[in-house]
């Protein structure tokens, strides 16, 4: 940080994974930089230019590349990282499906891909395979060839739908 920037520090407030937090940032700091220095290491840097999707996070339930998002612009918003997706002792259906389908290899693109898929499932609970592929088209993976991640997302979508149906019935 340059001295000039240092004097221009600003405070923002984010709700990160349901916890309200305030941060001191420079106006030019990216959300990726802020989240990683705040300890959210599940947010990965793969390119820094919005091309690989490894840094994807949800801002108010929309998946964005944290490397292209100014932290200042997220002021007051809800930010969900991969660390905030699971409940205690229970994985999010997407996380479970990635394990069950063998969709994780090195795991570096996995957080971003799961976040992008979570964004999709929030607005479309019954996606086609093509819609799934389009939703993660910006999440590059060099290990898997995408076959198993796509299968995992389809499976998670189904289990989420079944879960919702069960909850409806139980009401």
């Amino acid at each position: 940080m340059t001295e000039k920037e240092n004097t221009m520090m600003m405070r923002i407030e984010l709700i990160v994974n349901c916890i309200r937090k305030t941060f001191s940032i420079s106006p030019t700091e990216t959300l990726l930089s802020l989240l990683r220095r705040a300890g959210y290491k599940g947010v990965k840097q793969g390119c820094g230019s919005g091309d690989c999707g490894a840094c994807a996070v949800l801002v108010d339930s929309r998946a964005v590349n944290a490397c292209l998002t100014m932290a200042a612009k997220a002021d007051g918003r809800q930010v969900t990282t991969i660390e905030g997706l699971a409940e205690i002792n229970r994985l999010h259906p997407l996380q479970q499906a990635f394990l069950d389908e063998g969709a994780v290899q090195c795991g570096y693109c996995t957080p971003g891909m799961i976040i992008a898929a979570a964004g999709l499932l929030m607005r479309n609970s019954n996606p086609t395979e093509t819609e799934v592929k389009e939703a993660i088209a910006g999440n590059l993976c060099r290990c898997t060839g995408y076959i198993k991640p796509v299968n995992a997302i389809m499976r998670a979508a189904q289990s989420l739908r079944e879960k919702e149906e069960d909850e409806c019935k139980n009401r």
Partner: peptide
């Protein structure tokens, strides 16, 4: 190591 990878452990 899958579980820790999908929940974003450092």
């Amino acid at each position: 190591d899958g579980r820790s990878l999908v929940i974003g452990k450092p």
